[in-house]
Design a protein around this nucleic acid. Sequence first.
DNA 1: CTCGATTACATTGCATGCAATTATATTGTA
DNA 2: TACAATATAATTGCATGCAATGTAATCGAG
Lengths: 155, 155
Amino acid sequence: MEAKRMSRKQEDMALLLGNQICFAAYSTAHAFNRVYKPLLDTLGLTYPQYLVMLVLWERDGLAVNEVGELLHLDSGTLTPLFKRLEAARLVTRTRNPEDERQVRIRLTAAGRELREKAKNVPPGILRACNRSVDELMKLKDQFVALRDQLNAALG
Amino acid sequence: MEAKRMSRKQEDMALLLGNQICFAAYSTAHAFNRVYKPLLDTLGLTYPQYLVMLVLWERDGLAVNEVGELLHLDSGTLTPLFKRLEAARLVTRTRNPEDERQVRIRLTAAGRELREKAKNVPPGILRACNRSVDELMKLKDQFVALRDQLNAALG
DNA sequence: CTCGATTACATTGCATGCAATTATATTGTA
DNA sequence: TACAATATAATTGCATGCAATGTAATCGAG
């Protein structure tokens, strides 16, 4: 099983691509962040905080590491983030009596109510993307497949 | 011109998508970062520092704002980054005599030499992606088109 | 049951990103 | 030429991300 021979120019292009594909992902993520910013400002949330709230709105009372697995984030990021959400009175942090190592994150009433305000966010994002739902769905699936492949390559 | 009516379930899915497309980009960018990390560690560079070096290897002597435009980064990010590259003796920072507001970034000999070592990086990335060059090229173009659309939606 | 391994979270240190502000230099205009 | 507007970096403050380390709780092999 031998790969087809590439010309020197094709090889150079392939090498450039190795850099470009990552920069494309990197700069797209930042562009999304800029679009989200004004929308999330009205909620008083940063984008990672918004992600955490999305998780909690679906499944309240998760432990820190459970949220971390869903979002690919560790305690070094999440502990201070949850402390800020706690200071904002959106969540409470309590040790799990069943397992004192775990800290359960629970929404406060204010945290639950914020969900209503947050309903404006996705339509704003979809509008900014200026693409059909079908197109975006396909694009998202390609992102996710690539991401999972990259994570698999680490293991 | 009226959009087709969507069922409630379809609407919910569309709203979820607004969140999912961004998270897909966000988590893909982080996955890339994790793949790059061990490769860049051998160069003593972080990913943003590597991006800056890629730019300088192509066009030495750019001003801070010119690099910033190419990478979508501002002086708040780049000034400390360049100072660290300067401390690592990879670049020099000198005011442009023609326009004292600008700071020109120039590679040192060591900075230019690092380019050889850096040739190993893109193949490692391409391997981790586990996709044909053609596939990756298309994916990259889709990323870029979405990113440009998002940036346009801000203006 | 016991003690080493593992797990979960917290902490520290470092490097982004970005908003907001400041300082300095240049440009444009009356 | 004066001087307001603009442009370029630098600085400050805040919030990630992540590696490395610390601490306490739990698990598991013998």
